[in-house]
Amino acid sequence: MQEDLGAQVRSEMFKRKMSQKQLAELVGISNAYLSDIIRGRKDGPKAQEHIKHIRKILSI
């Protein structure tokens, strides 16, 4: 996930008073894996699918 996209995700989670754990549950992945995606450590094809889902959930 690009740095600016990671910032958007954190910002939107803050606005919604949503924890990272809650978002991970909605996406269907572990909290640790979500953290890796947000920080840009995971960016393969599967991670890209999760990023699409995250964008849809957060409307970004």
Rank of each mutant, 00 (worst) to 15 (best):
Q48A: 10
I51C: 01
F14R: 15
Q20F: 01
L5G: 08
K17A: 07
K56C: 01
V9R: 08
R10Q: 10
S11G: 11
R10N: 14
V27Y: 02
Q22C: 02
L34A: 06
R10Y: 05
K56E: 13
Q48L: 09
Y33E: 06
E25N: 08
R39P: 09
R39T: 13
I57G: 00
L34R: 07
E49M: 14
K21Y: 06
Q8G: 09
R10M: 05
G28Y: 03
K17D: 12
Q2C: 12
D36V: 07
M13D: 00
G28F: 02
R10W: 03
I29Q: 02
K46M: 10
S19M: 00
A47W: 09
I60G: 13
G44I: 02
Q48N: 09
L58C: 03
S11H: 10
Q22G: 00
H53C: 09
R10F: 00
R55T: 08
A32T: 12
K15P: 01
S19P: 04
Y33N: 04
A32L: 10
I38A: 00
R55V: 02
G40F: 11
G6A: 07
A47R: 08
E49N: 14
Y33L: 06
H53M: 13
K56M: 01
G40C: 06
H53V: 08
K21T: 07
I57K: 03
S30V: 04
L5A: 08
A24V: 02
K21Q: 08
K46A: 15
P45Y: 11
Y33F: 12
